[in-house]
Simulated assay, not measured.
Amino acid sequence: MPLIFLRRAMACALPLCAGVAGASSSDDTRSLDDLLTQATSVTVRQGTSADEAAHSGRLRQYANGESLLFQGDGEDAADAPVMLMLCERSAYFNTVGGLPVGESLSGESLKAVRVGQYLALIGGVATMQGAAGPTFRPPVEGEVVDTTVETEWAYGKEQFSLVARRQADGSAHLRMLKLGNRITVPETGPDDMFSTDEDRAARLAELEPVGTWRELIISVEARAAEIPAEMSLEGWVGDDGRVMATVGEARKACGAR
């Protein structure tokens, strides 16, 4: 995987790397986009059925622009650190953890998996942002928003339930469940050239299945200054193949203090 793609991936899509987290309050009425911009950490759990073990990722962000991605599955998900970004341009990948049991990866294959895990988290957040809409605001502490939302697809609308609440620590919790697909485009006529029965079926098959669910947890406490310099990088490898003993050593190697 080209390094330029990795850097673009780490900077893509959502306002997760901008802003500084501020203190939350019981009357916090910031929008979902604002919360994401100011987030200390963002966790996404997702699955395609109610009884499926959660696939989960968590991105923790630091005041100096560094970030650390955690990955896992099941109830105790997102507990394995798998990728970190230093100096806004230098990535390191954990060669163990957050991989299928018994699987070992290295080189470009390892990079591809780690960036894929990052993009899965970003994609989950973007899906929930898109469904909630730009004006959606998570409720204040003690209140619950329980509503139904729709998004466009080629021949109609996808329908979702959306439940949002705010915890006492200021974090926002959202859960979205796909309820169904609504078709709004009239049936195919004999003279239609593009809207054919085959195209309708193909587009429908591309949609996520009914029962797909996602949970989004946005924490907005004050960000720590940086990843601890003494964090061991034993078992980690840089995007350029270099191996460092600690985060502090890797930080110096990319020109930071």
Results as ranks from 00 to 15, higher is better:
4 I>T: 11
168 A>P: 00
88 E>T: 11
134 P>C: 09
200 R>C: 04
65 G>D: 07
243 V>I: 08
213 W>F: 10
191 D>N: 11
140 V>E: 13
38 Q>M: 07
238 G>F: 06
247 V>W: 01
167 Q>E: 13
256 A>N: 11
213 W>L: 06
253 A>Q: 07
180 G>R: 08
33 D>A: 12
91 A>G: 04
123 G>L: 07
153 W>A: 09
93 F>L: 13
118 Y>S: 00
84 L>C: 12
28 D>R: 08
101 V>P: 12
229 A>H: 10
1 M>H: 08
194 F>E: 15
174 L>M: 09
250 A>G: 14
238 G>H: 01
94 N>G: 15
2 P>G: 10
221 E>M: 05
207 L>G: 10
234 E>D: 15
133 G>S: 06
209 P>V: 09
246 T>C: 11
50 A>L: 13
236 W>G: 04
226 E>I: 00
182 R>D: 05
131 A>V: 13
90 S>I: 01
256 A>E: 15
35 L>W: 03
213 W>A: 10
66 E>A: 14
97 G>N: 12
23 A>V: 10
240 D>R: 12
112 A>V: 02
47 G>R: 15
85 M>Y: 00
239 D>A: 15
236 W>V: 09
97 G>M: 07
139 P>T: 06
169 D>E: 06
14 L>S: 09
59 L>Y: 01
235 G>P: 05
238 G>E: 00
43 T>P: 01
190 P>N: 04
84 L>D: 01
